[in-house]
Design a protein around this nucleic acid. Sequence first.
DNA 1: CGCTCCTATGAATACGCATTCACCGTCATA
DNA 2: TATGACGGTGAATGCGTATTCATAGGAGCG
Lengths: 357, 357
Amino acid sequence: MARKSSRSTSFDVAALAGVSQSVVSRAFTPGSRIADETRTKVLEAALKLNYVPNSIASSLTTKRTNIVALIIGNLDNPFYVHVLHTFSRRLQAQGRQVLIFTVEPNSESDEAIMHLLKYQVDGVVLTAAQLSTRMISLCHDRGIPIVLFNRYIPGSDASGVRCDNVAGGALIAEAFLAAGAQNFALITGDLKGTTSGDRVRGFVERLLDGGVKRSQIVEVHGHSSYEGAFNATIKLIRDKSRVRPDALFGVNDIMAMGAIDALRHRLGLRVPEDLMVGGFDDIPEGRRAPYQLTTVRQPIEQMVDETLSILHLDDPTEPIPRGIDRPIKGRLIWRSSIPVPPAYRGEADAAKNEDER
Amino acid sequence: MARKSSRSTSFDVAALAGVSQSVVSRAFTPGSRIADETRTKVLEAALKLNYVPNSIASSLTTKRTNIVALIIGNLDNPFYVHVLHTFSRRLQAQGRQVLIFTVEPNSESDEAIMHLLKYQVDGVVLTAAQLSTRMISLCHDRGIPIVLFNRYIPGSDASGVRCDNVAGGALIAEAFLAAGAQNFALITGDLKGTTSGDRVRGFVERLLDGGVKRSQIVEVHGHSSYEGAFNATIKLIRDKSRVRPDALFGVNDIMAMGAIDALRHRLGLRVPEDLMVGGFDDIPEGRRAPYQLTTVRQPIEQMVDETLSILHLDDPTEPIPRGIDRPIKGRLIWRSSIPVPPAYRGEADAAKNEDER
DNA sequence: CGCTCCTATGAATACGCATTCACCGTCATA
DNA sequence: TATGACGGTGAATGCGTATTCATAGGAGCG
């Protein structure tokens, strides 16, 4: 059989059902004017012919593809996998699909944008990746809304949804202070994106506010990954020129996990007894028995909701939203990678119950 | 500005460049008959107008969308995330994109198929999900090639690429035997797919061949996930009615990791001293310091290559490949979750070096 | 110089569907 | 019975591009 064999069209169905092609179209368009009886007749004919409407063809007239592009720069961090999964589920429930564009972490996504423009996607979500403002206006000019997820470009007219990273970083600082830490370290990746930078800033500022001296805080950079944090931690602890920290903030969970494993399996230190560790994101992996990571939970579902609402997928006549910056507060989840101060015992138990469900 | 504002067409470009629309089309079609000078002129005009060819419209005539659907049933297992990532990278390099369809694990993907038919995708890859044979013929009838990744339906005319799971299971059995294990346990998820079943079969058969008695092998089922294996392991070890196994095969790496953590953090056992553990997949997570998982490596790159070559994306005139079953041998990677017998020391050191690169 | 051959281009058409507009029959109303 | 009003249908058109076919012009040859 030839490859492009029998793909029946609305005309074929119309012929079989004894109606016109317009009627077939209406039979598949909810809310259009057609007699129930006729619709049934058409659907039966369609079934016989294995007819499925060609959404490519209909996009041509409706100017809607029901496709949303997701540009994603880091699938090695489980957090972004969860983000992808959440978007996919939500959009599928709306009858839309995700067209995925993977880019190298920290590389510009400009090329991806050029490609997705061809596909006439209804909207774009960009996460864990960089983007030039030129590309944003290119999308806007063409009527394609774009939302940055967990990223923002201050002063640009790009819209974004993000966790309030400054406030979140402060939460970890507070947890450390409440647990009685004295010397602080933080491990972060490159600061190209605003995400890490904000967390670092919130963390450091809160510590300084709490009376900690600058000299009590060490900042280490590594590749923004489990391995990067693993190696950076080893370097940090082996550096005998400074006092060993007793609190370590991994700027995201996957890095905190790398740090914990380095501490335990390379450096022979105990967590949290010798060193308490805090993370950020609350990925399910951080809840596992070896980590029990105290962290800031990013409310993914809510952030995805916000993102979709900004995209206005349902009514394309809305003007494209510009310059929106919607920071959403995260919540501190107490587990045992930071010793739980008495005041927070109840909260920690609640989190534990929730995890075990 | 209105939403669907200024999206210029090939006619606009033609007008600006002083040529006809056909010439614009040719300017963007590699290998078509057009004078270099003219092409340059057209491209300049296109640039001025921010013109990007509308691939939706061109699909209508070419009958190619350059979109490949990927149905994926389990993003919680990092293995499938790597699979997704690999497909995405490969296809993007060819100028194609992945349209993602997430389905609930172990649910039928029939609905997803109905949706992707609308999008006129050029091909379909299905992984970690179930599918009825009816849907396969539906795709085939419409000229859409579909390949099952790590899954096959014996006797059907579906094509598939998979790791040779029977042989792989046997490799773990051999490793256990070489390490001197006496009592064996295996933890597996539901056996709906062929993947787990084959691994179990290869494992058990190889043990029996090696003189192990049936009574020395315990099989435990749990949800096919980290947590499922974690809980199943606890149940297994706490069952005092039988001797404690000294070797445990997690039917995939993520389950093996769950098992290891349960052994260490709930049951107070040491790995590999009290219990050796083997996995399957060789996900990067299993290489981490706490796990050092001895496992069977699935050659993802090669499997993806095979899959793409079966899809024949480049020449749609090829007849749709039916009934292909391409098993690919995996390779045992020695790490330290199984004590390395002297004969394999060299191999293990090599793996270690490779990991640390 | 006249012819053919070939290359570069333009005009026209098809792709599959949504949508507009006109039309027809029916029913309720005056 | 005549008049609208309205629900349902069909014919025709447009969406943006690829492709076919015809043509103009130039190069090469005898």
